[in-house]
Amino acid sequence: MDFLKRLFGSGNEGSRGKAKDRLKIVLIHDRTDISPQLLDSLRSEIIGVLTKYMDIDTQKIEIDLDHDEHEVALVANVPVLRIKRGKVDVDKE
């Protein structure tokens, strides 16, 4: 069947589809590339917000972008020492 398709010029079995798939994946990664400076400032702001609500072990925080083939996720691992109960009134913020 494949040879008939090629002979009659239908079908999309060339390299075009592969190019588009590869391009999409490359762009997902390029667009989420983050500079160390930006990641540092993100990290310190996240710590700032979290410490309003809980005591956290700031030395052991891990924040990074996790790339797999089709998507990128922001992964944060934050060891919590104690939740601050009754200290923060969110509505008044």
Binding site: G9, G11, E13, G14, S15, R16, G17, A19, K20
Partner: peptide, 12 residues
């Protein structure tokens, strides 16, 4: 080449 499926098309 686009028609033969061997080049990225405008819409791609």
């Amino acid at each position: 080449m686009v028609q033969d499926g061997d080049m990225l098309a405008k819409d791609d």
